[in-house]
């Protein structure tokens, strides 16, 4: 797969990254190279193989349904860039 401006910008949009012309240019090149590297897997036959998404062979651990609110609003917002009246705030969103 050759990455061009369009395909690279489309990915950047999905990933919420804005790119300047220079970044765009070098990313097109880098992505093309990386994808050609990972493309070597296409030769491997994996038809009858189940995917492994985690190597740990164990049952999912379950938690009891006990409620506790440990984090104060103040601690929650300790690192917040911007807040109002205990809320997180973002630029106005129109739904």
């Amino acid at each position: 797969m050759e990455f061009d401006k369009n395909s690279t910008l489309k990915l950047a949009k999905l990933a919420r990254l804005s790119l300047n012309a220079e970044q765009l240019n070098s990313l097109e090149k880098d992505l093309t190279s990386i994808v050609s590297f990972i493309d070597q897997l296409k030769e491997i036959n994996t038809e009858k193989i189940d995917p492994t998404s985690n190597s740990l062979d164990q049952d999912l651990i379950l938690r009891e349904d006990v409620a506790e609110n440990k984090l104060s609003n103040e601690d929650l917002l300790k690192n917040v860039p911007e807040s109002e009246l205990g809320f997180f705030v973002v630029p106005k969103v129109i739904e």
Binding site: L11, A15, L31, L41, K42, I49, T52
Partner: peptide, 26 residues
């Protein structure tokens, strides 16, 4: 992030992500 977004995106997921997880099994 770009590569990760690409291999998970619609149309490429099976060819890359699932493939790689199968390779992991092997």
């Amino acid at each position: 992030i770009m590569i990760g977004t690409y291999v998970l995106s619609s149309g490429y997921y099976d060819a890359y992500y699932i493939k790689a997880q199968k390779i992991r099994s092997i």
